[in-house]
């Protein structure tokens, strides 16, 4: 599986973008994430797999502090991006989220035009000095989102009028428009058909050139296709983490083996 990318896998482990140590998440009395340590490499795709409710999405949302919006959620441990703890009291989550972009499970474009959707992030962060620069940013983001050719003639049409797959690529373009360093994707293809999924997967592979991508997925095939590293979560534990090829062909833990062969989950 995925043998073409063995060269990538040889990349040394010390090029770490995100370093999580001893992360615990509690939703009220529910211990959702148990003592997770993980290193996420720069310019690589890392996949989180595991059965429903195992905490992979929760952990992903810890990486840009989206869980802050849930008042019942308590997080301990430390997560460092470029050696800076994002749960430090000096960190402003808004600034963090400009650095760590996110794409959600369901396509969620703003009910505005395609242009305004993509331009929103750059606009609030003041990335463009004038109209022309903004046009360039929007075009670049839409090209990176592999949707420029489909929408270039109707940039001011409502984004909500597009198909699901197009909407999701608009959302990806919107996320990359703010020039983040890490891109978090929470089951980005779960609402898409196989053709749109293939387009998005291709896109993820291209995004790897510039970003560190973390993707949560229910599809093991998808994890195998797009990722270089895979982490298997089960009931809040990080069971196994390593090279995607190793996880899928020669897992160390019996639970991982059961899951990937379809016996649990």
């Amino acid at each position: 599986m995925n043998d073409m990318r063995l060269g990538d896998r040889a990349k040394q482990m010390d090029d770490t973008k995100i370093r999580a140590r001893g992360v615990n998440v509690f939703y009220g009395d529910n211990h959702a994430i148990k003592d997770v340590d993980v290193d996420i490499a720069d310019r690589m795709v890392t996949a989180f797999i595991g059965p429903s409710g195992c905490g992979k999405s929760t952990f992903l949302r810890c990486l840009n502090r989206m869980n802050d919006t849930i008042s019942a959620c308590k997080i301990t441990g430390e997560i460092k991006i470029d050696d800076q703890n994002i749960y430090d009291s000096r960190v402003d989550p808004v600034q963090l989220r400009a650095k760590v972009g996110m794409v959600f499970q369901k396509p969620n474009p703003f009910p505005k035009s395609i242009y305004d959707n993509v331009a929103y992030g750059p606009r609030i962060h003041g990335l463009a000095k004038n109209r022309k620069e903004m046009d360039e940013i929007v075009e670049r983001a839409l090209r990176r989102g592999a949707i420029w050719n489909e929408v270039k003639d109707r940039l001011h049409a409502p984004a909500t009028g597009l198909s699901g797959g197009q909407q999701q690529r608009i959302c990806i373009a919107r996320a990359v428009a703010t020039e983040p360093e890490v891109l978090l994707m929470d089951e980005p293809c779960s609402a898409l058909d196989p053709i749109a999924t293939a387009q998005v997967e291709e896109l993820i592979d291209e995004l790897r050139q510039n970003f560190s991508v973390v993707i949560v997925t229910h599809s093991m095939q998808q994890a195998a296709r797009v990722s270089q590293r895979t982490a298997f979560f089960h009931l809040g534990d990080l069971v196994e983490y390593g090279e995607t090829g190793t996880i899928f062909t020669n897992p160390e833990d019996s639970r991982t083996e059961s899951y990937i062969s379809g016996r649990i989950g």
Binding site: R97, G101, V103, F110, P111, Y120, G121, R174, A175
Partner: peptide, 27 residues
């Protein structure tokens, strides 16, 4: 207003105030 709109705005780095004023309130 669907929470996904708030998530989308927060996800691109809008502050809570911006998410509310730019997206939630108009809807």
């Amino acid at each position: 207003v669907p929470p996904s709109i708030r998530d989308a705005a927060l996800g691109v780095g809008a502050s809570k105030m911006q998410a509310t004023m730019h997206h939630v309130l108009p809807l």
